[in-house]
Design a binder for these strands. Structure first.
Length: 871
RNA sequence: GGGCGUUUAGCUCAGCUGGUAGAGCGCUACCCUUACAAGGUAGAUGUCGGCGGUUCGAUCCCGUCAACGCCCACCA
């Protein structure tokens, strides 16, 4: 308690961060109490970050924004449910595991409980070892655990007030169990169904992809003008009418099932009802009218192949009688097609099969080249090959354009409930409001049910088997689903009720579903996973529907939408009341930061250089939903504010070393007018900050608190510092109590924003002021309330004026001189004499002032208060 | 083509229901002078993207155009 010990202190963020972190952990400051009621609970549906690669600035930015809200709610006395999940389920992890351990998943191999994976550490060209899916998942779990530790550390250092007891990963037993439970519920409600249908397919990952995971990219291609003929039923006929089709996909020619033109197109009207003959393969296909054919584009007539693009799929689905002709396999090789069969008829099967001989097994690109050569040889390629740019759908993480492939998949019905989803969107409070448009747009544009199956390994297996009949045919239309008690399970290692392991893949036996679920099928259940939905000891009812869901805008169509859909299906409720969309961090040129552009800034360095509190300041100055250009300056400003708070607090504590009373504060003893004015200012600040926080507008709250704090330093401290240690007793006490009160208020107001520094100051108060508290941390203190009493009728500007004047005089070293305080806009003049008298008394007792007079002037506005300072 | 957002001082951004603009950084000048030089004091800086309209009055409301960004659709 010696003065020197205070004086020596310098702002050292990393030291106080360490201290605070261990205190929080030791005291369980952020622990969620599952026994408290729903009304007393504020629940947050935290986004589980993808655990691959590293956390970037954008994460730190948006997670800080959620944390400040969590901290405010906690100080309001709420029981905060603030979990953290890791999204480790999915492709990126799977690929890494394959590389790191040199293993791959085989669906044929049984589970080996004794299996231990070893990292291959530099050994190259090892043949990948085959292991079972369940073993593979175990290895994935091991690897992601390491990443999760790194992430957790970084989040802790940022000061997130997460309850780490509520940590989960999207592939752990609980998540798998709940994802499977969700599936069973959807199945029971007839919302999940399996069907053979064309789906978007990634050739490299060899998996189905959902509508929401596609993105458009521009690719280079070529137009080929190919000559077709109207068929007369013979393979060769000089007199057949000819027409030309422009296509960019000649390799799909074998899959052509129809030729279409716009119904009003005069050029082709007479062809409708007739058949066309495909070049090379001589397959007869109907010529039909179709509205999606645009007479302006190409030659106005086009081939429908199963399948070249979404149009083909849509149109094909509407036509009931068209065949399906799949020409390439799951890896993008041309299938071995036999012409002259029922599925692939031809007017000249011999010739067609001769061409096929050379095409089969080729990758599509090579096949296209070959076909073009054949066409040239037969003089069926008309005009020039014209280069073009076109947009194609890609899987977000993929390298090659998506293809449409027909396969059996599990779907979740969405299309029948678009209206309901739109209504759900209306019930949610969107922050900022306009983000709702993205949700609406997406729902309105939905064109396919949700394909939830993925032909991958690291994911949640479908708890499903299919019976095999006496002829060895798999009865896909009669799925056998697992029962609740057995979850989580992998059907590859479990047996359905009524069967034995020996019947696996046998006649009259069963076959396991080999697919896993889409990542979103699990992550759309974060509210259920967080609340341990359907589990013993579940506290789902105490947190659901959640109060707050933070997330970024690019996943409104996926995560937000799917979460709403699942909640709607399972509970017939909204998953959360408020959704807050954070903005993006852009690089200084206002471009989105992305790995491919090489403009990504990693957070570790800034966190270390400026300290977590300064780092948070940068994130918390930004409003929700607003993209922010990265600017290192903002860290400096945060650092400066932290330093100022540190020094000002230190100074006030030093002023109070000889205080009359050190135990707490007594507002009753704050009697001097300027002190009371200052209390009013603090009250207004608390009121405004609270209002802002209630609207989740933490950045306005911060701005308000920050500016009040600067006023405190620049004007109020200036005004009272002399009086607070050498004034008359009553006035001295008034200043002391007011300073203690201010310290307390700022300590609490800044706590959600700068948790580390505020924790430190909280302990200074105990050490140097001998204050005692019944909680171990500032973060368990209550948010301050504004005082309910009558406010003065003149404003804080008065304090500013006097204080500036005093400082100006000191600077000039002209003590004892008169100084003038301009009160042009002060409320004082509205209510002239009585208020002036009141102000005069206050000023006289505020310290350093010798004389206060009202100047003579012709008009009211020109009158000034003249203050004479002590010599 | 449809939808959404952004555009305010050199930079990053505030600006609540319409009353001729604010902060911080940067800049200029002065100051180790006071708890804090990671300070302080005093200052300069804007056709509030363009053009129309409503209004006594528009950064704010309406229309329109432009630039930038995002989402969706189309792409034979």
């Amino acid at each position: 308690m010696e003065q020197s010990s205070l004086q020596k202190l310098t702002y050292n963020p990393s030291e106080m961060e360490k201290k605070a972190l261990s205190l929080w952990q030791k005291e369980g400051v952020y622990k969620y109490d599952k026994n408290r009621s729903r009304q007393e609970t504020f629940s947050i549906d935290t986004p589980p970050p993808t655990v691959s690669g590293s956390l970037h600035l954008g994460h730190m930015f948006s997670y800080s924004q959620t944390d400040v809200i969590a901290r405010y709610q906690r100080m309001k006395g709420m029981n905060v449910f603030y979990p953290m999940g890791w999204d480790d389920n999915g492709l990126p992890t799977e690929r890494r595991v394959q590389n790191v351990y040199g293993i791959q998943c085989s669906l044929e191999i049984p589970y080996d409980p004794a299996y231990q994976a070893t990292k291959k550490e530099g050994k190259k060209n090892l043949k990948a070892e085959d292991i079972s899916r369940e073993n593979f998942i175990e290895v994935c779990n091991e690897l992601t655990l390491e990443d999760e530790k790194v992430f957790k550390n970084l989040f802790m250092n940022l000061g997130l007030s997460v309850d780490w007891n509520l940590e989960y990963s999207t592939i752990n037993d609980l998540s798998r169990k709940i994802a499977q439970r969700s599936f069973l519920d959807l199945f029971e409600k007839k919302l999940a169904y399996t069907q053979e249908a064309p789906i978007m397919w990634d050739l490299d990952f060899k998996t189905a992809v959902a509508q929401a995971e596609g993105e458009d990219r521009e690719i280079a291609g070529h137009y080929y003008d190919i000559e077709f003929a109207v068929s007369s039923g013979k393979s060769e006929n000089e007199n057949d009418a000819k027409f030309t089709i422009s296509t960019t996909r000649p390799e799909l020619l074998m899959g052509c099932v129809a030729v279409v033109a716009h119904p009003d197109d005069e050029r082709y009207k007479s062809f409708f009802g007739k058949k066309a003959k495909t070049p090379l393969f001589n397959v007869e296909v109907p010529i039909l009218p179709a509205l999606h054919a645009d007479p302006e584009k190409g030659t106005g007539i086009l081939m429908v192949c199963t399948f070249g693009d979404a149009n083909d799929v849509d149109w094909w689905k509407q036509q009931k009688n068209l065949p399906l002709r799949q020409v390439f396999d799951a890896a993008g090789h041309i299938e071995s097609i036999e012409f002259g069969t029922e599925k692939f008829p031809s007017l000249d099967a011999v010739k067609a099969n001769k061409y096929m001989e050379e095409l089969k097994g080729l990758y599509m690109k090579a096949a296209a080249k070959k076909i073009v050569e054949f066409l040239q040889a037969e003089n069926l390629l008309k005009g020039e090959i014209r280069p073009t740019k076109r947009f194609a759908k890609f899987y977000e993480k993929g390298q090659r354009p998506l293809e449409y492939l027909s396969s059996r998949q599990w779907f979740v019905r969405l299309l029948h409930q678009k209206e309901e989803f739109l209504n759900r969107g209306k019930e949610i409070s969107w922050l900022p409001e306009h983000m709702k448009n993205r949700f609406d747009n997406w729902v309105k544009g939905l064109s396919a049910d949700w394909c939830i199956g993925r032909q991958r390994f690291f994911g949640v297996p479908f708890p499903v088997w299919y019976p095999i009949d006496g002829e060895g045919k798999v009865q896909y239309h009669k799925p056998i689903v697992a029962s609740q008690e057995d979850l989580p399970l992998d059907p590859l290692n479990s047996v359905p009720v009524g069967y034995t392991e020996s019947q696996r893949n046998e006649k009259n036996g069963f076959k396991a579903d080999t697919d896993v679920m889409d990542t979103w099928a699990t992550s759309s259940l974060t509210p259920q996973i967080g609340g341990r939905w359907g589990e013993e000891g579940s506290y789902f009812e105490n947190i659901y529907p959640f109060d707050f869901r933070p997330q970024s805008h690019e996943i409104i169509r996926t995560w937000a939408f799917y979460t709403v859909a699942k909640s709607h299906f399972h509970e017939d409720k909204l998953p959360w009341r408020n959704i807050a969309i954070s903005g993006w961090i852009l690089d200084p040129d206002r471009k989105k930061m992305s790995k491919s552009k090489g403009n990504v800034v990693t957070p570790e360095k800034y966190l270390e250089d400026y300290g977590a509190d300064a780092f948070r300041y940068w994130a918390l100055r930004a409003k929700l939903g607003v993209d922010t250009a990265f600017d290192e300056n903002q860290f400096k400003i945060g650092r400066k504010l932290c330093n100022k708070i540190f020094n000002a607090t230190k100074f006030v504590l030093m002023q109070l070393e000889n205080a009359t009373s050190k135990v707490g504060y007594d507002v009753e003893k704050i009697v001097v007018g300027t002190d009371r004015l200052w209390l009013d200012e603090l009250s207004f600040c608390i009121e405004d900050a609270t209002k802002a926080f209630e609207k989740f507008d933490y950045s306005s709250a911060l701005m308000r608190i920050e500016s009040t704090f600067w006023n405190f330093c620049d004007y109020y401290i200036e005004l009272v510092k002399v009086r607070s240690y050498q004034g008359q007793q009553e006035e001295k006490v008034s200043a002391e109590e007011s300073l203690k009160y201010s310290l307390d208020v700022f300590n609490r107001l800044f706590a959600p924003f700068m948790p580390f520094l505020m924790e430190e100051i909280f302990h200074w108060r105990q050490e140097f002021l001998s204050e005692t508290f019944d909680v171990p941390s500032i973060h368990l203190m209550k948010w301050p309330l504004s005082e309910e009493r009558e406010m003065q009728d003149y404003s804080f500007d008065l304090i500013k004026e006097i204080s500036s004047a005093i400082r100006a005089q000191k600077t000039k070293e002209q003590k004892g001189m008169k100084t003038e305080v301009s009160l042009l806009k002060l409320a004082l003049l509205k209510n002239e004499i009585p208020s002036f008298e009141l102000a005069r008394e206050d000023l006289m007792s505020s310290g350093g002032v010798k004389k206060v007079e009202l100047s003579e002037a012709k008009s009211l506005e020109e009158r000034k208060i003249e203050v004479t300072l002590l010599g």
